[in-house]
Each structure stands twice: as C-alpha cells, then as structure tokens.
Nucleic acid binder design. Structure first.
Length: 271
DNA sequence: CTATGGACCTGAATGC
DNA sequence: TGCATTCAGGTCCATA
C-alpha cells in the first residue's frame, strides 16, 4: 500500500489533528515489527508537535524531545478517529489524545511504531540514518544521482528501490518511473548514461508528484486518513499490467522478477 | 563494502 | 465447496 505519496497523504491528513494535542493513553495490540521501546506511561501527558516524513517513515515529535517513528510496512494504514471507536483485530497501535485517537491498522504487521528519546537516538538512526535524498526536494540532484548509479553493480530497478540514492520509490513507482523514462528495469545501474540518469531523475519526480496530487495510489486498499481512496491506479501505465497493451505503443507489457519483486515494463518503449 | 535470499505475517485471489 | 498454492505496497539481517 504505502510508498512515498501514500505516506505523505497520510501525514498531511493526520498532522493537523495531532498538532498541539496531549497524549492521554496508548493501546498496544499484537506485536509489530519492533517493540515500541518505551513504557506507555512515559508518553502519557506529552504534547504532540509536528508530524514529519522521511522517506516512507513518519516522525511524530513530542514535547519531551522524543519522537515516535512510524512505518506502515506493506499493509499499514494510519487514521485519526474522533471519540474512541472499538479496535478491530488488526488495530495494533492506538495513540489516544484528547477527543480522538490515532490508530494503526496493519493486518500483516510489517509496520512499526518505535520511540526514540531524541531525533538521533540509536534506533532512529538505524532506521532513517542511511536514507538518501527526498525525491521531491532540492536535495535530489541529478548529477549526484548519476554518480551514485555508476557505483552500483545491480539493476537500475533494484538501485532505485534500495533507498540510499533516493527514498520513497517503492515497487509500483519504480516500474512507473522507469517506463516514463524509457529505461528497461534490467539495465545495469552503472551503465546509465548521464542523459538517461537525468531523464530518470525527472521521471521519478514527475511520477511521485502526480501520484501525490491524485491523493495516493489506490492499489488494493489504500485509504487516506480521511478514508478517501486515491486514484493513481487508473493511471498506472505498466504496473500490474502484464499481458495488456502498453498505453503508449500497444506492445504487450511484460513482467520479470528482480530481487524477488514483480517488475513491469514495455519491451518496445523501454530499452 | 556489496549483492542476494530469507525472514517477518495475514488475507485475497487463483487453481485443482 | 474445500483445500493448497501464490502473491501482495517494505526493509532489515544474515550469508556469500
């Protein structure tokens, strides 16, 4: 479900509901990927500040100087509810504030909520310290990106998803960005010319921005914090479309497995 | 240090 | 209908 656009849509949805609110309770369901790392009582009474995003991680600042690092994994969904609706079997974390609750719903439990006593606590650094530049910020530089790709002895698609040359590009948008740039996903990363790296750099930004503008991908079950589905899926050119016609040239879209992830491309448009 | 495969977990879709 | 198999948005970690 969540790649960068979905996480950002979620962030924008919950931030205004949480800012300035005092934490009055915490409820833990089944274990997530990592333990919270702090006793729930330590959070109670703290006031929430900004809700930020780094790659696919959300960072909830607390007035005690700590931070809650939230990741949605594959199936996670965060939403703010007014009142205190009953928790379902897949609701594994509640952050209760005055008047409502921020709830993590995550059937597969690959997601996590981890507390760091400071923004550079060891666990926080482990999770986000190695991340590359934000694709939609000025930190994402085409030249640096190209230099990074040249060091990589793997496919361009896997290099994109590794998270240290650029963050936020997951399995869907990797295929989509490579399609838009006309680059075959199996191309060795270090073989990309400067021109093609620039095209890819621009395509990544366009694809993510477009998805963001559309409210996030709607693949399967994405819902924003307000419960609104995104509508990017209708615009997916190749992802999940093996055997169908390429929207650009009509050739049959193919799929291949790279790094154990399904990858889609048009063999005519992408070289 | 780099690249690869396994691991984590549940539900939906597909196939016999 | 019932049961087994495959696949799904992520990413850390052990292993070569």
């Amino acid at each position: 479900m969540p790649e960068l656009p979905e996480v950002e849509v979620t962030r924008a949805g919950i931030a205004p509901k949480l800012a300035g609110r005092r934490i009055v309770g915490v409820r833990l369901g089944k274990p997530l990927r990592w333990p919270l790392g702090v006793a729930a009582e330590e959070l109670i009474g703290q006031v929430i500040g900004a809700v930020r995003r780094r790659g696919k991680y959300l960072l909830v600042d607390l007035d005690g100087g700590g931070v809650l690092v939230v990741h949605l994994g594959m199936s996670g969904r965060l939403a703010f509810y007014t009142g205190s609706p009953p928790a379902g079997p897949h609701d594994h974390f509640d952050l209760q504030v005055e008047g409502g609750v921020l709830r993590l719903h995550d059937p597969r439990r690959f997601g996590a909520v981890v507390y760091g006593a400071s923004p550079d606590a060891p666990m926080v650094r482990k999770l986000i310290g190695h991340l590359g530049p934000e694709p939609l910020s000025g930190d994402f530089d085409a030249h640096v990106f190209h230099l990074g790709l040249r060091q990589r002895r793997t496919t361009i698609k896997q290099a994109l998803m590794a998270g240290d040359l650029v963050v936020g590009v997951g399995n869907i948008y990797a295929s989509e960005a490579l399609f838009e740039a006309g680059i075959r996903p199996t191309t060795p990363a270090h073989r990309l010319s400067r021109q093609r790296a620039e095209r890819l750099h621009a395509a990544i930004r366009r694809v993510l921005q477009r998805a963001l503008d559309s409210g996030g991908s709607t693949l399967r079950d994405f819902l924003s914090a307000e419960g609104q589905p995104g509508h990017f899926q209708q615009e997916a050119a190749v992802y999940g479309r093996a055997g169908q016609a390429c929207p650009r040239c009509g050739h049959t879209v193919r799929s291949v497995v790279l790094g154990q992830r399904s990858t889609f491309y048009c063999p005519r448009c992408q070289t």
